[in-house]
């Protein structure tokens, strides 16, 4: 028998599955290396876009290049972490179509918890690396003294920023119960949200500010924390101190996500798949 985590405790079923997925991915050697490289390339080109713009201008939306590094780093770190943990929820439509979602129903755990822990995509590590590098570089280049306030702010931003994106993935997955080829539709707010998060929200016209500030609150994942960290004022309607309310924004996204998830699974069980 392979090494079993000691049975007992509420976490061990999830740990068992995750550990097995990590082991499974280690066995796909060459494909994995190439995937890592591809992921790295994606992360680098995303940054290259920002870099090319700053080749032409000094300031964008009130932020200079070093500040943009922090913005880019925080937003991409949060998104990549969420993608690592929850990104595979986008395979839900495949399970539904193949009828294999039922296997999850036959196990004594909540459905969402099973799906979230059913996979962990180690390829995302390269993008996490790129984001982390950008963040650290930006923080070092900016002249900020790092005391407890700054460190707490960073921690809140990273943890709850990840939670916001993870919540968006859950919203997107829930909608798959209703849409047939719906994953492309939800990309508009998951990947769109990620793209919006790495821009200074100040550049958006008012309707978009409201959208990405409050409705799909990706401004909380990086822009507001960056402002608060660097002591900059925010644009009208989005003051810098809102950064401390990032957990609230995450709570809002997860509330909507859980409601949509319940709605979606109910639809699946009533509709018959």
């Amino acid at each position: 028998m392979s090494g079993l985590p000691l049975a007992g405790g509420r976490v061990s079923p999830y740990r068992a599955v995750l550990a097995s997925r990590v082991r499974a991915q280690r066995s796909y050697r060459t494909g994995f290396a190439l995937d890592l490289f591809g992921s790295l390339l994606i992360g680098v080109t995303e940054f290259a876009e920002v870099w090319v713009i700053f080749h032409n201008v000094e300031v964008l939306g009130g932020l200079d290049f070093h500040a943009i590094l922090v913005l880019f780093g925080l937003s991409n770190l949060a998104f990549s972490l969420a993608d690592l943990l929850v990104g595979h929820l986008d395979t839900l439509p495949t399970y539904v179509r193949a009828g294999t979602l039922d296997a999850f129903y036959l196990r004594p755990q909540p459905l969402l918890a099973q799906l979230v822990t059913s996979e962990v995509d180690l390829r995302r590590i390269s993008r996490i690396g790129v984001a982390g590098t950008a963040l650290v570089s930006g923080l070092v280049l900016e002249d900020v003294s790092y005391g407890p306030r700054e460190l707490t702010l960073l921690a809140i931003a990273i943890v709850f920023g990840t939670a916001i994106f993870a919540g968006l993935f859950v919203c997107a997955a829930s909608l798959q119960f209703f849409l047939i080829n719906g994953s492309e539709l939800t990309n508009s707010f998951t990947y769109g949200g990620s793209y919006a998060a790495q821009q200074p929200t100040a550049i958006f016209p008012r309707p978009l500010k409201l959208l990405f500030g409050y409705l799909i609150p990706v401004a909380f994942t990086a822009y507001l924390p960056t402002l608060a960290l660097l002591g900059l004022p925010g644009p009208a309607g989005l003051p810098a101190w809102l950064a401390w309310l990032t957990p609230v924004a995450a709570g809002w996204v997860w509330l909507v996500g859980m409601l949509l998830w319940r709605w979606g699974t109910r639809h699946y069980q009533v509709g018959g798949g």
Partner: peptide
């Protein structure tokens, strides 16, 4: 491994599993 995971999912004591 499938058996091991299922044993963990059903929280079976190691010896019993």
């Amino acid at each position: 491994e499938s058996f091991a995971i299922l044993a963990a999912i059903h929280r079976l004591p190691a010896a019993q599993a």
